[in-house]
Design a protein around this nucleic acid. Structure first.
Lengths: 350, 350
DNA sequence: ATTAGCACTCTCATGTCGAGAGTGCTAATC
DNA sequence: GATTAGCACTCTCGACATGAGAGTGCTAAT
């Protein structure tokens, strides 16, 4: 597709633009990257690359800047993410230390996710995102109900993966703690090991089938379970907005505000990440490839973590189009694999 | 201290600076506020106010801008926060609607706090902060332990006020659910109604006193309780960082980044709010009065909410020095009172 | 095919200038 | 004696010009 030297030039431009954030000129390329030819030659090649849509010029006489297509080519064919760790020993070290720590955290998934987002963002200076396991892939472990004051019940939901969720429910006052225990016992004995969503549909089906002839307790159980598992909003973990503000890419406020808004209503990110979930390997979405309006102009590097073969959730880095893809890919890959590993360990032990 | 007309001028300057964010000149004052005298007179008065330290000039020939001292005088003597609601019917309406909604939320304190921060920030465009009740003033209602996998236990802590906290504990594998139930039953029967901190010190004392001759169960109970109530970090609720970025005061990035950082490590805010807590009525800290380095240049309007006479926590608005104090004071006052009211209702019902 | 040379273009920092806004001071006025 | 009108003065800000610097495209030579 591109001859060797053109590739080298493209790589040079992408890499030095990522580092310096300044349009890169032909002279600079010859100086920093020993390609064995003069600026003029580079200029010709660059002109070709521009015609092909890989590079562009901010104005007539500035250096070149990669286009989305340029980044895409770089990521697909020129990146060396696999060996990134070899070059940046410090980062590799960080990641290693972190993965070891993660393995020590054990079953407190919420805690783990917080750690992961923080690690992602602080090591990369981009925005770290972690999507916890989706309800259709979380396995119900047990639910408990605690009576609290006259008409309130606290539901505590545990999953095999370790996510704890709790919710305060308003119930009609007729429930005693005894009732609640029976409901919980019923749900636990009957449904432990299935996914949250499975259970939901099973319960609904059951209710339809045997409608009238149904134990009062069970109808109650269904109702209360439904209320307990309807968690307001699919939540995810974010961190690093503040670090990202330090990047020179976002020196103007308006961009930042956009991003903040996008993250605040979560909708856009959720949508994007959902599209990326399930596919294995690291996914990269660059700039305007982004299907979601609010995130155009940002790049996303994401990877799905799994329990065995079952995809659970997604971790991602969101940064400027000019992000250090090699680094990001390396990190996301390493950490998602690490998360998967902790899941395996867990299931082994139990 | 200041004759009537000087006060009027000071008020005029503060108010129009708050609205316009532009240095206000003598001509403008005579036009907008009918004080019955000419620009020249105003100039003289302004010069006096400047000598007294209430106003300052950004440069020789710009209008005047209030100093911290100026704002302070305004807040103390010129504000009309009490009747603020009369002027801004829309806001009053908002606050009313919101308080009514709050009363409907009931016992889900966490949910309530989220609502409150959101309301604070969205109605004011400043940063809303809510400090939940401190451990020394939260009343233990009950604790439950749920056995989860081999060596993990989930502790669920409920307080009278409705705060739910849960934590996954690693315990030695010897515990059966029976054991856990007995421990919980012991703690619940013995200590329900006391504050979290009281209980902690009581337990420690007990353990010391009767050291050797102590039921194995109880020593375990103590250990497990301690672990369960040691919550990593005193947390509080924040919202509105993104809105505040829209304010012209923060058009330069660096300020925003500072603030973000301050909020991120929470330490500074915690420290400040703690200093303000317990005092009744609305507290105002203006700009450099702020004892905490990171927050200098910002103003804080805070108020303590109570259960009966016992102070529970603090709500606050953080904004630029040039914030609309009357409005902020009105809001913080109204909402903190409303929170207190919901506490009363709750205790009545139970 | 590559390269040296050169004219050309565009940005950016700097400097100058005039308009506009607001002040301080002085002298006149009520 | 307080207030006001008038005026010179100061400072900011945008518009405009200028020149240095960086980088290009093209052409002719290698």
């Amino acid at each position: 597709m591109l001859d060797e030297r053109s590739r080298q030039v493209l790589r040079a431009v992408v890499q030095s633009y990522i580092n310096k954030l300044e349009p890169v000129g032909s002279r600079f390329v010859t100086k920093e990257y020993a390609l064995g030819c003069s600026p003029a030659t580079i200029r010709n090649i660059m002109a070709d690359l521009e015609d092909l849509g890989f590079l562009s010029q901010p104005h007539t006489s500035a250096g070149r800047v990669p286009t989305d297509k340029g980044y895409r080519f770089y990521v697909n064919f020129l990146g060396d993410a696999g060996e990134y760790g070899e070059q940046d020993a410090e980062l590799k070290d960080c990641v290693c230390r972190f993965t070891r720590r993660l393995e020590g955290i054990g079953s407190d998934l919420n805690g783990m996710f917080v750690e992961v987002t923080n690690a992602l963002s602080s090591m990369s200076n981009y925005i770290g995102v972690v999507m916890p396991p989706r309800p259709e892939s979380t396995t119900f472990n047990r639910i408990d109900f605690i009576r609290y004051k006259a008409d309130k019940v606290v539901a505590v939901l545990l999953t095999d993966e370790g996510v704890i969720k709790n919710k305060m429910l308003s119930v009609d006052a007729a429930f005693t703690q005894e009732d609640l225990n029976r409901i919980a016992a019923y749900l636990n004995s009957e449904y432990s090991g299935r996914t949250i969503d499975e259970i939901k549909s099973m319960l609904i089906k059951k209710m339809r089938q045997e409608k009238a002839a149904w134990d009062k307790l069970i109808t109650r159980a269904i109702k209360i379970y439904e209320e307990a598992t309807s968690f307001a909003e699919e939540d995810f973990f974010v961190s690093g907005l503040y670090d990202v503000m330090g990047l020179p890419d976002f020196s103007d406020m308006s961009r930042i505000r956009e991003i903040s808004r996008a993250i605040k209503d979560k909708h856009a990110i959720l949508k994007l990440i959902e599209e990326l979930s399930g596919v294995s390997g690291v996914q990269v979405v660059i700039g305007n490839e982004n299907p979601v309006e609010e995130l155009k102009g940002l790049s996303v590097v994401a990877s799905t973590y799994k329990e065995g073969e079952r995809p659970m959730g997604v971790i991602a880095l969101i940064g400027p189009t000019r992000m250090d893809y090699s680094k990001a890919i390396y990190m996301v890959d390493a950490i998602s694999k690490c998360i998967s590993r902790t899941f395996e360990q867990r299931t082994e032990v139990v």
